[in-house]
């Protein structure tokens, strides 16, 4: 797994998670969260995420808690296994959600 982030020209922060997003990613994801500006919107991009587990769901809730305002977070490009898991866990209702499935 790798977590990379950048801010686009509109000030929206993009967090891209490549590969597996699972229990082994706690440290990297928490480090990525800590760099985010709470005043700006965040898009978590699942376009290159191949697998997530329940620990990943927990990490998204850590992000939600950190940002304070759920309206500032969108889960984007969800497809395949990640899309399936996020929907079964009702995360498409807890966050802004953008599926490409």
């Amino acid at each position: 797994m790798s977590v990379t982030s950048n801010t686009d020209q509109y000030g929206i922060q993009h967090v891209m998670i490549s590969g597996r997003f699972d229990f082994s990613c706690h440290r990297d994801f928490r480090a990525a969260i800590a760099t985010l500006n709470k005043a700006s919107k965040v898009v978590v991009d699942f376009g290159t995420t191949t697998y997530i587990d329940s620990a990943a769901l927990g990490m998204l809730l850590l992000l939600r808690d950190y940002m304070g305002d759920v309206r500032s977070i969108r889960l984007a490009n969800c497809k395949g296994q990640p899309d399936q898991v996020l929907r079964i866990a009702n995360f498409h209702r807890l966050f802004g959600y953008d599926s490409t499935a």
Partner: peptide, 21 residues
């Protein structure tokens, strides 16, 4: 099962996920 009362907890979904998926 997924429990709405625990929907914002960072843990507690593994068994329900396994059962459903």
């Amino acid at each position: 099962d997924f429990d709405p009362d625990r929907s914002l907890d960072p843990n507690g979904r593994g068994i329900a996920l396994a059962r459903n998926v």
